[in-house]
């Protein structure tokens, strides 16, 4: 197993952080459509790659690998960085 395989095996997706996303946004976000600010491709948040073995959660575009969202929770609060999302469209 080389380093790339290790990273690949550590990859989850947006489904695995559905609870955290609902806590932060107040609604299920896995069915929200997100547009990647780096490459413009559109994907459901549930289909984004999720990296959870870190002090926070990183969601990446499955097409270009660009970071779409970072969410970090600390005892003092929650930081949400959405610079990599051109938009998030939530369904009613």
């Amino acid at each position: 197993m080389n380093d790339n395989d290790v990273v690949r095996d550590l990859t989850l997706d947006g489904n695995a952080v559905a609870g955290l996303l609902e806590e932060v946004f107040g609604a299920d976000m896995t069915t929200a459509d997100g547009e990647c600010a780096h490459c413009g491709s559109a994907n459901a948040v549930g289909a984004l790659r999720a990296y959870t073995r870190a002090p926070g959660v990183v969601l990446r575009c499955p097409a270009c690998g660009g970071v779409i969202a970072r969410i970090v929770q600390t005892p003092r609060g929650t930081l949400v960085d959405l610079r990599g999302a051109a938009h998030l469209a939530m369904r009613r």
């Binding site: 550590l10 989850l12 959870t52």
Partner: peptide
């Protein structure tokens, strides 16, 4: 085609 990655990291 819906996917869910359920790796050994789950």
């Amino acid at each position: 085609v819906r996917t869910e990655r359920f790796g050994p990291t789950g």
